[in-house]
Design a protein around this nucleic acid. Structure first.
Lengths: 356, 356
DNA sequence: TATGCTGTGTGAAACCATTCACAGCGCCGG
DNA sequence: CCGGCGCTGTGAATGGTTTCACACAGCATA
């Protein structure tokens, strides 16, 4: 593979001229310009991203740090970011932290010397990333936090309206007549889990309801957590007639626990999840959920990062995306007391056609 | 952030010595060595990966090209590769092709000048990648193909035993008494789809069965494909009593089509999928499937790539991983003719505990 | 004592693109 | 006719690391 010097020789121009033609960084008269372009075409020359990055103190790399790509929520985020990156000539470096702060630090440290233009982070926990990411900012890299925010974050961010989503879902359940409500929240040191719980409580308050703290269970954002906490909830007296699961994985675990207990969803107990993952369409019953678009989350974040690279001193942007309650088969009015299982089933959106 | 020169000055040694200490590339006497290490520690010096890569014609980057991270099979592959990469001080660059050959080429071209040490590819189609990847090989990069192979591939690879898996699943269905078997295969220009079909046919042949080509439907590896082709199969006379779906997404579509037709799985018709994704545990009925480990696929590929980097001229390795039939609730003996729906349900592995 | 060898350390060259100060040229206005 | 300006193009300096040829000291051998 040739280098720029050879292109310059072949085109009979100087090194600088080749660079100017390639980067459109100065006027070059047509004949010379053409000679350079021809030389590039015939040799198949490609500039070394390494040399370029070294010189410019910045590469066309976007680094992305997420908890775990195996969690079905994150592939969408990654894909959204990768699409925007690719469309703009950037590459995406993917790092998994497993929500382990130490691992997050290792990634953060190791990535720095690749001089990425941007860094998109889903923070692993509530530790203060401001200090860590400052070195990136100093190096001229854009830093964008998404999904949840570290403590005291005052930089660019993309999140969703967690409280509103949870509020809406909870209100819906109350509207159906549920009075024994429960919530299974994610780890409360995560801002998104906190906000969802806030929305839940706000809806209860609005309805003049008050619930025993035991009906709000905190756990990890996964199936195992949902399974375990649902088992606990099912033993409580009175048994909740509806559960707000603060993400879909928790909801999945809840569904399994309900089935294992010999109960039926939604006849005995209603479930609403959060995220609206694809897999909520193939569970039985199909899971109602507060939908958010992981793809959009990632795409907006990448765009935000690129915008920041282009315009370093524009005002901070904190984008908040909307959620949308998608009611499917896992919700119904509460069973009437001392009744045989009620056989009502609400079928609203069957979005099969859209995806299948 | 300091550079090597400053470390050299601080430690009172030459540039070369710093390099030797850091890379353990020559003996350095203890006192000097310690001075260097101290200087590094106090300054928090980190070598520039860009300069290093430029000089060594190779970076600690592994590039990974996959069809689409949104497809639930691939996150596991990516995670496996990232873990191995990370453990060895490498970073993973992720690229999605959407099975679009043009996009694959763009990624291949763009990635090259980052000088990755390795390239892990799930080929988008049957085009001959040998030529394209040769330029990587020439540049000293290791190229590993996984999951499916491009035409005439003679380099390193990691695949699974597709034919054996399909053979096993099909034989199992035959053993249950099924005689009206159908298969929904993936795109037959993909080697894995081909091999799974081969396994299906081999099992039929072994049992002395012959089937009408109409019972073998080819489609894309997704839910929409499975849904559409199942609708076709359900209209055929005689209606198949069992379907081998050549991946889980197809199986998912099949399940939905069966439900929509007012039929029941497994009472009316049995389904076995392929891949054994997590989501097969939360469908209803739980989906039987030929399990493979995407994580292992990715991990082995990354290890293979790193091994090749370390030992350029070791013999080519073509690793073939095993599959494992996981029987859950979506299979049963065929319904007896003119019978009411049979209520047999085979419950073998409930691997809930393992995962939840 | 001269020679040769081993073990350490040095500093310049090389990798390749970008950028900056400057030079050459043609043209305009004075 | 000259000074000055705008437009193009030049080539050297720059960025940070690795590596190679070489130097030097100390020691053993002839």
């Amino acid at each position: 593979m040739p280098n720029m010097k050879q292109i310059a020789e072949l085109a009979g121009v100087s090194l600088g001229t080749v660079s100017h033609v390639l980067n459109d960084t100065a006027r070059v008269r047509e004949p010379l310009r053409k000679r350079v372009l021809d030389a590039v075409k015939t040799t198949g020359y490609q500039p070394s991203q390494l040399a370029r990055g070294l010189r410019r103190d910045k590469t066309n790399i976007l680094a992305m740090i997420i908890p775990d790509i195996l969690n079905p929520f994150f592939p969408g985020v990654v894909r959204g970011a990768e699409d925007v990156a690719f469309a703009n000539g950037y590459r995406l470096v993917l790092c998994n932290t497993d929500n382990d702060h130490a691992k997050e630090m290792m990634h953060l440290n190791a990535l720095r010397t690749y001089l990425p233009s941007g860094l998109i982070v889903i923070p692993s926990d509530f530790s203060d990333l401001t200090a860590q990411t400052e070195s990136y900012r100093n190096a001229g890299a854009a830093v964008v936090c998404i999904d949840r925010l570290p403590r005291n974050w005052d930089g660019d961010s993309v999140t969703i309206n967690n409280a509103a989503g949870a509020y809406h879902a909870t209100s819906y359940l109350i509207g159906l007549g549920h009075r024994q409500l429960a919530a299974i929240t994610g780890p409360l040191h995560l801002t998104n889990a906190q906000d969802r719980l806030k929305g839940f409580r706000r809806a209860l308050k609005k309805a003049g309801m008050d619930i025993d703290p035991g009906y709000m269970q905190e756990t990890t954002f996964d199936r195992a957590g949902g399974f375990a906490k649902t088992k606990i909830l099912l033993k409580m007296i009175p048994r909740p007639t509806a559960i707000l699961a603060c993400n879909d994985m928790i909801a999945l675990g809840a569904l399994l626990a309900i089935r294992e207990a010999g109960l039926h969803c939604p006849d005995d107990i209603s479930i609403i999840g959060f995220d609206g993952l694809d897999l909520t369409e193939t569970t039985s019953p199909q899971l109602s959920s507060v939908y958010q678009s992981p793809y959009q989350l990632g795409a907006e974040a990448a765009q935000l990062a690129l915008d920041r690279v282009a315009q370093k001193d524009s005002p901070v942007r904190q984008i908040v995306l909307k959620t949308e309650l998608r009611v499917r088969d896992s919700v119904a009015p509460p069973p009437k007391k001392d009744d045989a299982p009620v056989l009502i089933s609400l079928k609203k959106s069957r979005s099969l056609a859209a995806r299948a």
